[in-house]
Amino acid sequence: MNSHTAALCLLVLSLGIAAPVASAPSAGYPSVTVRGSEVQTMKSASTGRSYDLYIRKPADFDKNKDKKYPVLYLLDGQWDFKLLDSVVGGLVHDKQMPDIVVVGITYSGDDADYDALRARDYTPTPGALEGSGDGPKFLSFIKTELIPFVEGNYRGDPARRILGGHSFGGLFTLYAMFTEPSLFWGYLAGSPDITWDNDFLVKQEADFATKHKNLPVRLFVGVGGAEELVTPGVGFVRTFSARNYNGLHWDARVIEGEGHAGVKPEFYNRGLRFLFH
């Protein structure tokens, strides 16, 4: 071994000794929480299931005791509550919307099977997934249990209720709009599963149109340009918009380049801006 090779070997060995791999933090540190939020739990008589409610309060909530606030009832709170805290905070800072209460609806328990539970609650009819079709029960829970609780305890404004969801949540949002249109002021339907149960939503809207000329709500629909639901989503919006419902204010966007999950930040941002403008 020549002197250069020996020196190189010594350098490698010394670096290995001097730079050990950093150890992971211990499990004793506290978890990160969303500032200004709290968790409530409700056992529903309508569905028989327990729900955790992630509740974001406006910055001035504890100072203005008599003020009422718009409330966004957010489906899939286990995934999207932190996102909406950020989106709402940014839009409030930029004066694009007033501060609001956000109620993220999710399921109780550390081992909750979110995919299976949401497939039950967010689907309006029984379909290919086992246990699906509890949408009517879940809508009853929101109407008769959740809304009275929120408006009684968090000063929710009954004239500014918003329902928002994505995928199966978008399906449920549109189902709720055609079933109980006056229950909410605004509806945010992201990437709605139009194809559920042989195009259930298409048939529901067509039946609604035969009986109603008025639909006095605000609706925003968004879908990613790179997802499979873009084609049925665009087709649904074209048919729906041609009805010219009285009192309806709506907008829809195909968000270029986004897939099924990545569409959510821009969908909720644009949707909330539309509702409050």
Rank of each mutant, 00 (worst) to 15 (best):
Gly271Tyr: 02
Asp134Val: 10
Gly247Trp: 00
Trp250Asp: 11
Ala24Val: 02
Ser46Tyr: 00
His277Gly: 12
Arg161Thr: 09
Asp110Trp: 00
Ile147Trp: 13
Lys57Trp: 02
Glu266Leu: 07
Asp207Gly: 15
Gly89Trp: 03
Leu201Val: 15
Ser132Ala: 02
Arg118Trp: 01
Phe276Pro: 03
Thr33Ala: 15
Ser191Gln: 04
Phe267Glu: 03
Arg155Ala: 08
Val92Phe: 03
Leu74Met: 11
Glu38His: 12
Ala176Met: 10
Leu13His: 00
Glu227Ile: 04
Asp111Trp: 12
Gln40Asp: 15
Leu91Ala: 02
Arg253Asn: 11
Tyr122Thr: 01
Pro148Thr: 12
Gln96Asn: 07
Thr125Met: 15
Gln78Glu: 12
Arg56Met: 10
Asn198Asp: 13
Tyr245Trp: 01
Asp62Ala: 14
Glu130Val: 11
Ala22Ile: 04
Asp115Phe: 12
Lys82Arg: 07
Ser44Glu: 05
Thr33Cys: 07
Asn153Gly: 04
Ala22Thr: 13
Phe149Val: 12
Leu8Trp: 00
Leu10Trp: 00
Pro216Cys: 08
Leu219Asp: 02
Thr5Met: 08
Val150Phe: 07
Tyr245Glu: 05
Leu91His: 04
Asp197Ile: 14
Gln204Lys: 13
Ala252Val: 09
Pro58Ser: 09
Val12Met: 10
Gly135Thr: 01
Leu83Arg: 01
Asp134His: 14
Tyr245His: 00
Arg253Met: 10
Lys264Leu: 09
Pro158His: 04
Leu183Phe: 02
Val202Asn: 09
Ile147Met: 06
Thr179Arg: 13
Thr41His: 01
Asn246Gln: 11
Leu275His: 04
Thr179Phe: 06
Tyr175Asp: 15
Leu201Ala: 12
Phe141Val: 03
